[in-house]
Simulated assay, not measured.
Amino acid sequence: MRWGVVTTVAEPPALLAAFVAHYAQLGAGAIRLYFDRPDPEAAALIAQVTGVEVIDADAAFYSEELGLRGKPAQLNRKQRFNADHAMRTMEVDWLLHVDADEFLAAEDFAAELAAQPPDVDSLHIANGERAWIAGQAPQTIFDGVLRWPVAGPRRRIRRILGAEVAEFTDRGFCGHLWGKSVTRTGRGLKLGLHKPRRDPPAHQVAAKAAKLCHFDGLTRRHWVAKLMRYAELGMYAEPKGPHRCRHAQVAHVKNAGSDPAAAFALHDMIRVIPEDVAEGWREAGLIEAMPCDPAGAARALFGDAVDLSPEAFDAVLSQKETRAPGDARLIADPS
């Protein structure tokens, strides 16, 4: 039973090294990264790992390999085209499609896949979201706890989270809580962002032993930079559907005059859990110790060649060339 993972990336080399090291350690037989923009440094760093393949997803790739009229503008479309290309061309039995900030936690993933009946096309893997405990300074970009959504009626959610946190999150999550999928190849399925696409629909069941750790915003500055960029580009303009909480976050920043200080304060309110609250949430199963260790996997594979400290990650963000006013290099972390 050979499984692989595919992602579309435009992240700093250290994060990609951790991604590759983590999935290699979990037993992925093939790891393919579609580079949304060229990054020779990152490609050279991860190319030494067995099973890793890098594809420069430039305009020529989309026109010559996929038959499109140039490179799609929207990230979601690029991700779908890339994942579908991977489904057709990667020599694996199952393929996991994730973002570069999503890390699988599983004891023996291959065994869980091998145990699936033949009629199962896909497994849905629920995701938690990383949060921090107040007063615990992170040493790496992967420190913190894994948070799970608050279930039940809105009244219960507001009581547990507090009215303000409930307003800016989806049951406690700042990003998505839709999970991701690992899907059998060779069955005519196309990979969506969260689940496979086909008519008739794929037979999908829930994974029992695997979970996904979503590191939405690797540092405070990284999260704020993304939020500021959303505001500058007019994204999440409508308060509807599954993006309601993102709209509330963006609207809050815009109403504050696009002041980064307001975004940092919002981050700390909705992503940092007070110490006196954390213990009760642990007992209620709303947070748990981080069940994966990408930093440890990166150290084991790359040694001192990869610096996963928040300071180093932010420094790389500051050096990036940008085309958007909300980029990280323009935003200083007041802490």
Rank of each mutant, 00 (worst) to 15 (best):
L212R: 08
R184T: 06
F173R: 13
G234Q: 00
L161F: 09
H176Q: 01
A225D: 09
F173A: 11
R154H: 02
G188W: 07
L233D: 12
R197E: 12
V205M: 09
D199H: 04
T185K: 00
V182D: 08
A151W: 03
R198S: 15
R158H: 01
G192Q: 01
A209Q: 14
K211I: 04
A207E: 11
T183S: 05
W148D: 00
A202N: 00
V205I: 15
A151R: 15
R220D: 06
G186Y: 08
R184W: 07
A163M: 03
D216M: 07
W178K: 14
A210I: 13
P201M: 00
Y236W: 14
R187N: 04
A202G: 00
C213S: 12
R220H: 13
A166M: 12
R159Y: 09
R198T: 07
R156P: 00
P201G: 03
A237Y: 09
L218S: 10
A207Q: 06
T169S: 10
Y230F: 15
G152Y: 06
Y230A: 14
T219D: 11
W223N: 01
V224G: 11
M235E: 09
V145W: 06
V165T: 14
E232G: 01
E164N: 02
R229M: 13
H214A: 07
T219W: 11
V150K: 11
R155C: 01
L191D: 12
L218T: 12
F142W: 07
P196L: 08
I141S: 02
A166I: 12
K195R: 13
G186V: 06
L233H: 08
V145P: 05
G175F: 14
G186C: 07
F142S: 08
C174S: 13
E232F: 02
L193V: 09
V224A: 12
D170V: 03
C174V: 15
R154K: 10
A206Q: 15
H203Q: 14
V182A: 05
G152P: 11
T169Y: 04
D143Q: 04
D143A: 04
A206I: 06
P196H: 09
F215A: 01
V165F: 01
P149D: 07
P196W: 07
L146G: 10
R187P: 13
D143L: 04
V182S: 08
A210D: 10
L189E: 00
M235C: 01
V182I: 15
F173S: 08
I157W: 03
Y236H: 15
V150Y: 07
G217A: 07
Q204P: 03
P200H: 14
V224K: 07
I141N: 05
V150L: 11
H214D: 14
L233T: 05
A151Y: 00
K190M: 15
R197W: 08
R158T: 03
R197F: 02
P201H: 02
I157V: 15
